[in-house]
Simulated scan of single mutants.
Amino acid sequence: MLRRRMLIMLGIVVIVVLALGGYKAFSIYKQIQQFTAPKPPINITVAIVEERAWQSRLPAIGSLKALQGVNLSLEVAGTVKALQFESGQKVKLGQPLLQLDSDVEKALLGTAEADLGLAQVDYARGSKLVGDSAISRGEFDKLAASQKKAAATVAQLNASLAKKRILAPFSGTIGIRQVDVGDYLASGTVIATLQDLSSLYADFFVPEHVLPKLAIGQQVQVSVAAYPERIFKARISAINPKVEDATRNVQVRATLPNPEGKLLPGMFANLQVMLGQDTRELVLPESSITYTLYGNSVYVVVPKNGADGEPEKNDKGEQQLAVERRFVETGERRGGLVIISKGLKAGEQVVTGGQLKLDNGTHVAISADQEVPVEQSNQPRVD
């Protein structure tokens, strides 16, 4: 009886061991099938390497300045009697802007003009008497000096009266008023700013080694943060004849028209100086380049070959694709594009999205709506 029980228990143990062994063998088989089964292709986006016209440009940064711009201030102290402008008003050359109290100077001028009139009468009478030898030459000279002194006093008071008012030194747009009627102003007090916005200067610096590439009249494209969708055209109007000792840079000035008055002095500007003629270059989107310490590389889409070296095809008879990592030399970048100077040929397909999932020889599939040529998107409008 005991032997029978032992045999039954031994049979049960053998059955359990065989079941566990079979389950483990089945699991190993499934894993082997999973790893040996061909992996599905990774979906990628690509761009076609294009050869296109490319004009060399020199990037720079600068600031805008008014063609003419001043802070209107007083030469003499006084109390504001009248303000003849409004903030933001456009004014003409010679237009009165401010008048200080000048009653005292006007009264003194009246006295001086009366003295001048008397001196002129005495001089005219004396010129006749000296001709008749009724007065001496010395007395006549005193009369002439008195007339000149009175005329000088009148001129001096007229000049003082002129300093009691401010006239627009040129046509332009006046800024925000800083004073009010009745204010007592010391000499040198700024009442407002006046800017001629018909044209602007764009001042910027360039390294000294690019100086031979610059010339008067060269075209410059200007863009500002206030109008990112627009590019304004300017031309180089002056090149400083001195290199800055501290930076070894040269100051350059470009002039750009501003008929709409949208650009304002003091704006930060990004500039592109046009250099030379267009050249033919291979270009790619910057997103396709992988930058590393060992060099810049891209993934190029190529036909996938089998172990026998023959191209592989899927069950639909279509050519299967893989990627090949290729190191390239890059050049100037602009507008989201980069020049490829070495490593690629025109017409090749380069991966622009999904590079993190790829390795050399990875099986890939191109998304049907993503195989597009290189384009510069969202380019600003050139005025």
Rank of each mutant, 00 (worst) to 15 (best):
L2E: 14
R4G: 03
G11T: 07
G22R: 13
Y29T: 06
Y29S: 12
I32V: 08
P38G: 01
I42V: 15
I48E: 15
E51W: 03
L58T: 05
A66W: 04
V70W: 07
N71M: 10
S73R: 14
L74G: 11
K81W: 06
L83T: 07
F85P: 06
F85R: 08
Q89C: 00
Q89W: 00
P96I: 06
Q99L: 15
L100P: 01
S102K: 01
G110M: 12
A112N: 02
Y123F: 12
S127N: 15
S127L: 15
K128S: 05
V130M: 11
G131K: 15
G131C: 00
D132V: 03
I135F: 03
D141C: 00
S146L: 10
K149Q: 12
K149G: 02
N158H: 10
S160H: 14
K163G: 01
K164L: 05
A168V: 11
S171I: 00
I174D: 10
G175A: 10
V181K: 13
V181H: 00
A186F: 02
Q195A: 14
D196R: 08
S198C: 06
Y201I: 00
F204K: 02
P207F: 04
P207W: 05
L211Y: 11
I216R: 06
I216V: 08
I216N: 04
V222Y: 04
P228I: 05
E229G: 01
A234K: 05
D245Y: 03
T247W: 05
V252N: 01
A254V: 09
L256D: 04
N258A: 02
E260M: 02
N270V: 02
Q272H: 08
L275H: 06
D278N: 09
P285D: 06
E286C: 03
S287R: 10
T292K: 07
Y294D: 12
G295M: 04
G295P: 09
N296S: 12
S297C: 02
V298Q: 02
Y299W: 11
V302I: 09
K304C: 04
N305F: 10
G306N: 03
D308M: 02
K313T: 14
N314W: 05
K316C: 00
G317R: 14
Q319A: 10
L321H: 05
F327K: 05
E329T: 15
I340S: 06
L344I: 02
Q349G: 00
G353M: 12
G354S: 10
K357C: 00
V364E: 01
A365F: 05
S367F: 00
E375Y: 01
S377I: 11
Q379K: 10
P380I: 11
R381I: 15
V382E: 15
